[in-house]
Design a protein around this nucleic acid. Structure first.
Lengths: 115, 115
DNA sequence: GGAAGTACTTACCCTATAGTAAGTGTACTG
DNA sequence: CAGTACACTTACTATAGGGTAAGTACTTCC
């Protein structure tokens, strides 16, 4: 998952920027190609890992997991696993994740006007 | 300015994603650390290059120019240069740039609620 | 005449993000 | 008993984005 080196200028800047600038803070959470797409697919209803994979065929397993872990760590989605075999894992949006809807909406609107 | 290699999977994906997904399209335009900050500083009034530099002390000249060029290429800001010595260049938001305001607003709101 | 201001440009390095590909363990199914 | 499904994990590679540092051409000010 490519560990983050903590003593890097870029990480320092990110932290400072995220603290000072609410927009950067939000960008940090939902930036990247896949995160908004995943959020979108979880918006209608909760989904299993394998369902997400089917919904987003272009994503690789690595990126899917990586994005899910980050979203979970940032508190935007909730992971619920049942300790059975075969594994059963469900992902759903947290309240904070649901709160992103106006943001996504605003972005989509702007894109449709300016595309 | 780090040239973009056109024959890369990542660029292909970006293009496809931006076409299919309005959110990714928007993200592409205003993603990165500095772009939202620059847009914010241009929101109140138009500014000269040197004024922007003063307003955003942490940014390097390279990143400032780079971001400005990209924003200009994407039609979000307008550059007006007067051919005098010393050079006189003014940047202002384009109508499309102004249209980003609801987006920025939504992101800021979410951040303030969830920070 | 050296410094400072103007708006850039150039060269090089480092790292996070993304992509490719293969492996893990358990259990059900044909 | 080989194959498939499930949810991951691991190792490697490539590249775009960001950072550091220095240089450019011209003119005004002290």
């Amino acid at each position: 998952m490519t560990a983050i080196k903590e003593t890097s200028t870029i990480q320092e800047n990110k932290k400072i920027a995220a603290e000072l600038c609410p927009v950067t803070f939000t960008m940090d959470k939902i930036g990247g190609y896949w995160k908004p797409i995943i959020i979108y697919h979880l918006s209608t209803d909760c989904k299993r890992y394998s369902e997400l994979k089917k919904c987003i065929p272009a994503i690789t397993e690595k990126m899917l997991i990586q994005s899910l872990k980050q979203l979970e760590a940032d508190g935007l989605i909730l992971r619920e696993a049942r300790p059975v075999v075969p594994p059963f894992v469900i992902y759903r949006l947290s309240p904070a994740g649901v709160g992103l809807f106006p943001v996504i909406q605003a972005m989509a609107n702007w894109a449709l006007e300016n595309q």
